[in-house]
Design a protein around this nucleic acid. Structure first.
Lengths: 183, 183, 183, 183
DNA sequence: GATGAATGAGGGTTCATTCAT
DNA sequence: CATGAATGAACCCTCATTCAT
């Protein structure tokens, strides 16, 4: 992970990873048949870590709008906290789209819950998901790159809620509730 | 362009480009000092082509909401029409973020015009831009990859308008107006 | 044997052999100090199996011409029956010439017996052996590769007998006698 | 060639070839896309050299028996003269059987001519070719390895002629005629 | 006696880049 | 201005072999 965050997925070489791990490349190949397999398994590990964190974040909140907002803000918080890690994650999304698809299950569930709860009002589920994911991913990158002003995370989350049909005032309120602690 | 579209930016080699151009790699180096420079200049050329197309698309429309919708729909149309070209463009956005920044000037101008015209109502310009760009980029990828259903482009554009404060009914109407021809 | 037959001597690796044997490579090295030693011992085992089979084939036949013919035909039969095994054997002959030399003792004994019995008439024993061995090896390869027509084995054996001075008619008759069963 | 003769086809590495050629391996890859291609082209070059030499050897001799004998003796002469080159050739025959097939055209033509001239009397052409090729190849190896006594070449050629039905006395005479000079 | 874990030494291959002509 | 020819520096990957447990 350390090597891939520092050098990027494409640029990282097996020898760099090996050196960071304190072994030879040959040893690496005892565990990963191929560079691609290593990358793949890294992506899976990343996704699982994330999914667990998200699930924990959401555990007991019933309000779909709040769940949605927390999910996004958690990512933005992550982007501010660990920019390198975040950029790696974004690279993974490009290289292994199934990882993204897997993670998208969470906001999708929240979206549907919100619709059932009459909190959201969206004529097209797919378009809504694209807006949620697209905005979130793009904003994460901006934050990770240090291009975002303070308060941007909340503003972004609120805008997404409004796009989902949450009245402006309510959206602003929801995104200001405190983030639950990370377990 | 042909080579980069077919093989991707990272995988394209100088010899492939040279062969496609019917010259030797050495000749390439008479025009581009470096592979990176070649990629950079390709990105610039791409951006200029795009910017011109967008400007033309917009030329005489005064309604900011319509301009915004047309811009996005034009991209979605492009993604459906030339998936390979689109994926190249998206790669360029990742590799050369300034290209994206340059293009973002257009929707930014439309956003500001819409605010002046009281068509849009956004508390945070930066967040709005992230939503616009993020949604558009993500949706383009989905369309280019063939993952989008018919009508997705319009639904997506309408959702963005709603996020910008356009009333739902009006948003749906605006995105149904015919795309002006590409002259 | 199974690995070497399937992959060829040069291409077979210690890990492949180990896997086929259901042990680790380290265990292999408790029995064979070296890859070369393993190959060598495999060759020896092959040779012994063969020599025993040949000896059995010949046990009680007094007629040297018939013994000679049976030896060759037995090989051709083997080549048709177990092409992979045969090609391995031929590889062994190239890699470990002493194996071939060991096996050549049998036809050499038959050759000498035939001369004593006045069945064969050869001015040069070494040249005769080269013709016998060379023809047999080459024909085995052709048969194992599926390049030979039916009846080729007998025609080939008859030709060798004629080269050894057996009158044509008699040669044709000898090679048509039934092969003794492999017990 | 030099590298392949010294180290054998399987053991020769691209770096060894490159070093012997006084270039880097990268340069090698400008001429041969692959190690296999290099080996293949080497084999072809070998075969062509040989075929030309054989054709020259035969140019104007009408007697099929003599042509046959000369062909074989030429190979035996080569084996004595250039053992390393010969062993390379034999390796090539194993690795690229089509090379052998190509060369076999010459003795095959001679065989057929001999049959037409009533010099040879063979009931089975394929068996005859196997005897010719098999004996010749095997004997070449023995000679190249230094395992053959003087006079072995002629004895071997005579034996093949007898196998083809040439009367013993005549066979012995034919193989004693002087080899025509190599142009 | 078997193994898990590691490795040294190399092998084939790629590619951006250079430079004299 | 184009090129032919060459290359340095890596890279991914393989495999026979070792050794403490």
């Amino acid at each position: 992970m350390q090597v891939f965050t520092q050098r990027g997925i494409a640029a990282a070489t097996m020898q760099e990873v090996a050196q960071a791990a304190g072994v030879t490349t040959a040893t690496l190949y005892n565990y990963f048949g191929t560079r691609d397999e290593l990358v793949q398994r890294l992506a899976v590990a990343l996704a699982q870590t994330l999914c667990k964190a998200i699930a924990d974040s959401h555990a007991q909140l019933p309000d779909a709008a709040e769940r949605m907002a927390i999910g996004q803000r958690r990512y933005y918080w992550l982007a501010a906290e660990s920019p390198a890690w975040t950029l790696l994650l974004l690279e993974v999304f490009s290289a292994a789209p199934d990882v993204l698809a897997q993670i998208e299950q969470y906001p999708l569930a929240d979206l549907r819950a919100g619709i059932r709860q009459k909190k959201f009002k969206v004529p097209d589920e797919a378009a809504a998901m694209d807006a949620i994911t697209g905005t979130c991913v793009h904003t994460m990158r901006r934050i990770a790159l240090g291009h975002a002003a303070p308060g941007h995370a909340e503003a972004s989350a609120a805008l997404v809620l409004r796009a989902l049909g949450v009245p402006p005032g309510q959206a602003d309120e929801v995104v200001r509730r405190p983030l639950p602690p990370l377990e």
